[in-house]
Design a binder for these strands. Structure first.
Length: 573
RNA sequence: GUGCCUGUAGCUCAACUGGACAGAGCUUCUGACUUCGGAUCAGAAGGUUGCAGGUUCAAAUCCUGCCAGGCACGCCA
């Protein structure tokens, strides 16, 4: 099934080519988009103004020629010219109704599988071993997971890869510190907490004790050279950390197809260097090996340290080469915070020089800050992710207990879990990721207004309506009656429902889940107006069924949309 | 110093990437029937889109210069 925008845009393109065969259609933005205001019709095309310039005609004349000479597209009742040359499409209510009926019969709600046959690798979350996941990790995890779900639904083959920070200099300090400070029982009970404590102690000692620092470096070298004891210890750190990460992921509903840390590409690093050298891309500088990127106006990319060690640019290049060879992806997408922009530009450029043609995309988001500034593990002012989730659930529980005292306690907890986690995720997904974000409890856990619970509430009300309908009209099936869009409120709701496929595609293409979140909130608001202002169970037969059908379609769209954002929708809240 | 990003209602954020009069939520104020779930709805108030120029039919959006904040700029990741 084609989307509305695709259908109308295709018509526009063909109509324009027919009326102005001399024009270069490909160069013009002939797409048709939804209007912002009902007064301007349902969909609009703004191409006449740009086309007029190209054709040396008046914009309104261009628009008029389209209106006069071409047959109207299917479903369009009126095509009008407004302002300087806007083309406003007014759709026929009947046709909209038939279309909604078709969407209702479609499992996919009219969403085309545009990603069919394509593969995308999504690299997100990627926490560091031996450190707790904190509020800084939630954005990558939640945004990455939403992109994962959206692409999957659009038909892509998605490989979500958790590229763990499981290699690097911190392991020298950790290994040495572990042998000196670790408490075995504490490590078993709460591994990351214990590793964190050990790390901080070891780090602090290294600052005042030069020999300690050297010893840590020696342990790191032994690890890198494959020393059995260190290797085993490292393996234990990774496994224990992963166990805890899994607990958080299970809670968040996040699943990875691959968990390949940086260490996975270890043996490939010398080969990457060899390849760079063979192609004459790398050169020595101050004892290190770099790739100059002057033509790209970038600072050099350092691929081997002066001590012979490799750094993360090398690892990331090896990762791309490995992925390209193994999975033949069309795209590789990274979701990280803003600080890594330069790094990604550099190593993407190096990859291209090495002949990688896969589309490489960096989706970045603003670093999470605390009102008093940034936080770091070393400073000890981190807010752990699990604590955030606990707090979210307990705040939600307090509200559920207050508003639904008759609900069994177990169900209250389940509702609070969905509402609390939904609120946290929605808070991150509903805004432009590139803006600065200052963490506050109230913002992260907002439960009213533009928030997940508002959407979940709308779903719950619809479920209730559907129950009551079955109760009062046993044996009736709404779909035996046609959908009618006589009231402007119904029509507005119907129109909005039909926008879902276009919005979803745009959100995925631009890697912006916030577009989907915005749409869902808008849809829920439109539905609430509908719900509050029009009777349905009390409406006459026929109208009643039509409205119940709109309820059903709204619920399915909201549920699907929220599901694609990783947010659950309990039947009762 | 260079590069990237941000600046929109009192507060938190939108604005389909150049489109029509800049929209929501929170807060404040006024209302909501014989009740389908009031975690709701209807309405009011709230703006020189950081500042100054420029580009054009059209600028929050593009260009130039300032101001304020964030981040990054070879051996951490």
């Amino acid at each position: 099934m084609q989307t509305l925008e695709q259908e109308l845009s295709a018509w526009m393109r063909q109509a324009f080519a027919a009326v102005f065969p001399q024009a270069d259609v490909a160069a013009l933005p002939l797409n048709v988009v939804a209007t912002t205001e009902a007064a301007h019709g349902d969909y609009q095309c703004n191409a006449a103004m740009a086309a007029a310039k190209l054709l040396k005609l008046k914009p309104r004349d261009v628009a008029q020629a389209i209106v006069d000479q071409a047959a109207l597209p299917e479903g369009v009742a009126r095509l009008e010219i407004a302002g300087p040359g806007f083309l406003n499409f007014h759709l026929a209510a009947d046709w909209l109704a038939r279309r909604l009926e078709a969407v209702q019969g479609d499992e996919r709600l009219g969403v085309p599988a545009v990603g069919q046959g394509k593969t995308v690798i999504l690299d997100y979350s990627s926490p560091n071993v031996a450190k707790p996941m904190h509020i800084g990790h939630i954005r990558s995890t939640v945004i990455g997971n939403a992109l994962d779900r959206m692409h999957r639904f659009l038909g892509w083959r998605v490989l979500a890869d958790n590229h763990l920070g499981d290699w690097g200099t911190q392991f020298g300090l950790l290994i040495l510190g572990f042998r000196t400070f670790a408490d075995a029982a504490a490590y078993e009970a709460s591994p990351i907490e214990e590793l964190e404590r050990v790390y901080v102690a070891s780090y602090n000692r290294s600052k005042e004790d030069e020999s300690w620092k050297n010893a840590a470096r020696a342990e790191l070298v032994k690890l890198q050279q494959g020393d059995a004891a260190n290797r085993q210890l490292w393996q234990s750190f990774v496994e224990h950390s992963l166990r805890e990460f899994e607990r958080v992921y299970a809670r968040l509903g996040v699943k990875f197809d691959l968990v390949r840390g940086e260490s996975y590409y270890n043996e490939k690093l010398p080969g990457v260097i060899a390849q760079l050298q063979a192609q004459g891309l790398a050169e020595e500088s101050e004892g290190a090996l770099i790739v100059k990127l002057e033509a790209e106006k970038l600072t050099p990319c350092l691929v081997r340290k002066s001590d012979g060690g490799y750094n993360y640019a090398t690892t990331d290049i090896a990762t791309v080469l490995g992925r390209a060879a193994e999975f033949l992806p069309d795209e590789v997408v990274y979701v990280t915070d803003e600080r890594q922009q330069l790094h990604f530009k550099q190593f993407f450029t190096v990859c291209r020089k090495l002949g990688v043609t896969t589309k490489l995309q960096h989706v970045w988001f603003g670093l999470m800050r605390l009102p008093e500034g940034t936080f770091s593990t070393r400073e000890g002012n981190v807010i752990k992710l699990e604590r955030l989730l606990d707090e979210a659930e307990s705040r939600a529980l307090a509200i559920v207990q207050q508003t639904s005292p008759e609900m069994p306690p177990e169900q209250q907890r389940e509702v609070a879990r969905c509402v609390g986690l939904g609120a946290v995720k929605y808070a991150d997904l509903s805004q432009n990721p590139q803006s600065l974000v200052t963490f506050t409890w109230d913002k992260a856990l907002a439960l009213e207004g533009n928030s997940a619970p508002y959407l979940q509430y709308a779903c719950a009300r619809i479920a209730s309506v559907q129950d009551k309908y079955r109760e009062r009209f046993p044996g009736s099936e709404p779909t035996t009656q046609p959908i009618k869009l006589d009231d402007p409120i119904e029509r507005g709701l119907g129109l909005k429902l039909l926008r879902f496929p276009d919005v979803l595609q745009r959100a995925a293409e631009n890697f912006r889940p916030s577009l989907l979140a915005d749409y869902l909130f808008d849809l829920a608001q439109t539905y609430s107006t509908f719900y509050q202002n029009l009777p349905f169970l009390k409406a006459e037969a026929g109208v009643r069924e039509s409205r119940v059908r709109l309820c059903d379609l709204t619920a399915r769209t909201l549920r699907r949309g929220l599901n694609l954002l990783g947010i659950e929708t309990p039947a009762r809240i």
